[in-house]
């Protein structure tokens, strides 16, 4: 079972306390954007095998949304971090680089 550390309440919450919120760092394009940009916001997802960034909500807990970096093929969790950011913190990127050299995900690497 997946166990994620909630960065808000500090609990190592198991999957049954959490609610998955899909892919992280999806950029919203609003009024004035092109059709292609809006399509990318609505539909285009990475869905990778390997390093992935997701949103999770500590639904049966403090109720806060947070981000998680993990590997979809091994279920290894690299770390979790605040939702108040538009890109993974350097510390998380370093942890991934140590274990998956040369990784990249969208514009992050």
């Amino acid at each position: 079972m997946l166990i994620l550390h909630c960065p808000y309440c500090g609990v190592d919450a198991d999957e049954t306390e959490l609610h998955a919120g899909g892919e992280a760092h999806v950029k919203r394009y609003g009024p004035g954007s092109s059709d292609a940009e809006f399509e990318s916001y609505l539909f285009v997802r990475e869905n990778p095998k390997g390093v992935h960034f997701e949103r999770w909500r500590h639904a049966n807990g403090c109720g806060k949304w947070f981000h998680a970096a993990r590997c979809t093929s091994t279920l290894e969790v690299f770390g979790t971090y605040s939702a108040q950011t538009t890109e993974p913190p350097q510390e998380i990127k370093d942890k991934i680089s140590a274990k998956r050299p040369g990784w990249s995900w969208r514009e992050f690497a």
């Binding site: 309440c9 609990v11 919450a13 639904a59």
Partner: peptide, 10 residues
Amino acid sequence: FRRTRMAQVP
């Protein structure tokens, strides 16, 4: 204090 789940309810 802990907020969690008990069986099927928060």
